[in-house]
Computed example of a mutant assay.
Amino acid sequence: MPNGSGTVIKRGRTYTIIYRKVQGGRMVMRSKGGFVTKAAARAYYPMLANPQDNPQTTTVAQLWIMLQKQRKWQDISQDKRGHYATAYKRLAPIHDREIGSLRFWELQDLVEDLPGAFYPKRDAKTVLQKIYDVAVINEFISPAKAQLISYLELPSKPLTAQDARTPAEMQAIWDDWTAGHDVAGYMLIMAYLGLRTGELMAIDPDAVDLDARCVVGGIKTEAGRNREIPIARAVLPVIRQLLPQAKSGLCAYGIEKLYSEYGKMIERTGIRQLRPYCQRHTCYTRLLEVKPEIPQAVINAIVGHSNGKLADTYGHISLDAKLAAVDAMQMLPTDVNN
């Protein structure tokens, strides 16, 4: 193993990054664990290798204490502070994490997994923003890092078929991809593979098997995590072209630029201003529309939905069955006409 190298190992359900280097005749080793994916652990490597470049680090729990000492906090009503305290308790999985090590997709999926509908998630987002603001004021992170919280998506209402992209809209996205816009390719990948935004940004590129037409990855629920995701034949050339550029999961750039480029795509194509998550919902909706009907267990296995007893059957559903399902989706007007 080269001197000064990093190794990622899996411990239980999380990953740990280990840094080793011989200095002055002795082995120096530093490690950091608790990462949901291998990609997240790898992303932390520079902080282990060069801790002097990150002299001021602090945890979410420490920032929470600092937040409560601010004068602005005392100006908040006691009732509202109680709501925020409850929201903070629900963020327990990241209490001991260094603020600079957190990734957008981790925060997005943590918020999505919280109990309740809109309001508990809104309070959690507000608390995160306040914590990140404290970190910026104390120069633990850059202002740009704190802007990540503004991108966290909150539920508005249960999604319906109207929240899926229409065949005409999908055709517009394909046309935008053909015109040379990478962001359209990422939206196609999300739609044909049924990926969450966080999954697009987190899946290890090494987990993509183009020959077998599958990806091993996913996040959030036990059903969604490390599932075998089929690659529809139609989107295979898109993945093949974009994969060599992958830096943030399957994406060539970070979440801020993804959302910025997505907004530009909306303007170019004239399609509805739905959030990127609608691409995943499009996959689920089109799978439900396939005739003859696809078994619900197969659909859930593809998109990573947890559904009681059906979750136990996921490991027994063949890749061939899932590939046949995604290849049968009618995404475009020409598909529908056929």
Score class of each variant (00 low, 15 high):
Arg213Asn: 09
Gly25Met: 10
Thr7His: 11
Pro51Ser: 09
Ala232Tyr: 00
Tyr262Leu: 06
Leu128Thr: 01
Ala61His: 08
Pro143Thr: 09
Thr58Ala: 03
Gly180Ile: 10
Thr58Gln: 02
Lys220Val: 06
Trp73Gly: 02
Ile99Ser: 00
Val36Asn: 04
Pro51Gly: 08
Ser77Leu: 08
Lys10Gly: 04
Lys121Ile: 03
Thr126Met: 05
Ala301Phe: 05
Tyr262Met: 01
Ile65His: 14
Ala325Gln: 05
Trp64Val: 01
Gly217Asn: 05
Ala144Lys: 15
Arg103Pro: 00
Thr197Met: 13
Asp320Ala: 15
Cys278Gly: 07
His281Asn: 10
Arg103Ala: 04
Arg225Leu: 06
Gln279Phe: 12
Glu169Cys: 02
Ala246Phe: 05
Val183Thr: 08
Asp175Val: 10
Leu287Trp: 04
Leu274Cys: 14
Pro158Asp: 08
Ala321Leu: 09
Thr58Ser: 03
Leu210Arg: 12
Ile131Pro: 00
Val235Pro: 01
Glu256Ala: 05
Gly254Pro: 03
Ser77Glu: 13
Thr7Phe: 08
Tyr277Met: 08
Ser260Pro: 03
Glu222His: 11
Val303Gly: 03
Gly33Phe: 10
Met331Phe: 12
Gly116Arg: 13
Glu153Arg: 04
Lys125Gln: 12
His281Ser: 10
Ala311Trp: 06
Pro46Met: 04
Gly33Ser: 15
Arg81Tyr: 08
Lys130Thr: 00
Arg268Leu: 13
Gly12Asn: 06
Leu159Ser: 06
His305Trp: 07
Leu200Asn: 02
Ser248Val: 15
Lys291Arg: 15
Ile231Cys: 08
Lys10Arg: 14
Gly254Gln: 12
Ala252Ser: 13
Lys157Tyr: 09
Ala324Thr: 11
Ile18Glu: 05
Val8Asp: 00
Gly315Ser: 14
Thr160Asp: 07
Ala41Ile: 07
Ile76Glu: 13
Val136Pro: 02
Ala321Met: 12
Gly270Trp: 06
Ser101Gln: 03
Glu267Gln: 14
Arg103Trp: 02
